[in-house]
């Protein structure tokens, strides 16, 4: 067998490549990350920083030479009674929606996971229950506007059953509008919980239930001591995410009530939108948006902390 003797001359290409190899090795991960980092910078970080900057100016976009006004815009927003109304409405809308999403989602998930229901029935109900999640917000808004119309199906049924003698103005009456939009949001969002919790339920080991049965646990005790603890991480994650998503709900409110009547369904999102695109007060709108960002960041902090604790 002939041995090959390779002579490496000083300054050869190979040595040059070797010299750059460690640098290239170090740079490669960053090069791969760079498209994402640039997208995040351009589409997320820079706009957020710009909006924070705008919130300290007298007005931007419509004003060519804006001047720094400190926290004036924040003071204006916080002193605006409509902002306080919007905060209260958002709180009600979010908390009721999230609680109802959880209860309905868990209830339907347990129903679909029950051995008492046949496979065909399960498949049928799975389709029926998941339907609301398949519609876009625009469809949901139009659908419910038609159904809740004073001359719509819901009122027709109520009148036919003798529960009311004339059509109720569900979305137009200050007494019912907030409840109506909250109901629509609950209808539109419980499916997501249901699907996720169903997956969680299917992952609960059967031997835990068997052990509980052997110990003489009732159905409620099995639910309380086995099902809920097993689903707890999913429930917490879902709830925090849902609070963030629901508190930012804009399209549904805008397309059903527009924040009316008389601000009873005004949310932080619609309030901010009106400031920007109706009053063209982009700086005040930015201040409002930053306040919402801060509230959301508090929730996001708890979510991330919870996820870290899980890991």
């Amino acid at each position: 067998m002939a041995a090959t003797n390779t002579v490496v001359r000083p300054g050869s290409t190979k040595r040059s490549t070797s010299r750059w190899a460690p640098t290239a090795r170090k740079l490669t991960p960053y090069a791969f990350l760079s498209p994402t980092v640039i997208v995040m910078l351009v589409l997320m970080l820079i706009p957020v920083i710009m909006v924070i900057g705008y919130s300290f100016m007298d007005n931007v976009i419509t004003n060519k030479n804006p001047v720094f006004v400190g926290i004036d815009n924040y003071v204006e927003v916080l002193n605006d009674p409509v902002f306080r109304t919007a905060t209260g409405n958002t709180l009600f809308f979010t908390l009721v929606s999230v609680a109802a999403h959880l209860l309905l989602g868990l209830g339907f998930a347990m129903l679909l996971n029950s051995p008492l229901v046949g496979n065909v029935t399960k498949a049928l109900f799975r389709v029926v229950y998941i339907l609301p999640w398949l519609f876009t917000v625009a469809i949901i808004a139009v659908l419910w506007r038609l159904m809740l119309n004073p001359n719509g199906v819901i009122n027709y049924i109520l009148i036919s059953l003798g529960l009311t003698d004339k059509g109720i103005e569900w979305l137009s009456s200050p007494e019912t509008a907030l409840l109506a939009v909250t109901f629509i949001n609950i209808w539109a969002g419980y499916s997501f919980y249901m699907v996720t919790l169903l997956a969680g339920l299917q992952g609960v080991p059967a031997d835990l239930y068997e052990a509980a049965r052997v110990d003489g646990a009732s159905a409620f005790q099995r639910f309380w001591n086995v099902t809920l603890p097993q689903l707890k991480p999913i429930i917490i994650s879902m709830s925090v995410l849902d609070i963030i998503w629901t508190s930012q709900q804009f399209a549904l409110i805008w397309m059903t009530t527009g924040g009316g009547p008389v601000n009873v369904t005004e949310m932080l999102s619609t309030y901010t939108y009106k400031l920007a695109f109706s009053r063209y007060e982009f700086s005040v709108a930015s201040a409002s948006a930053v306040l919402i960002l801060l509230l959301t960041m508090v929730l996001a902090f708890f979510y991330v902390r919870h996820q870290k604790a899980r890991d």
Binding site: T17, A21, T28, F32, I38, V39
Partner: peptide
């Protein structure tokens, strides 16, 4: 690292950098 591997790494770095530049 083999010459081929180094070459491949060089190419991938260049492609990733080009993608970023394009962006």
């Amino acid at each position: 690292m083999s010459k081929e591997a180094r070459f491949r790494r060089g190419i991938t770095t260049a492609v990733a950098a080009a993608a970023a530049l394009t962006l």
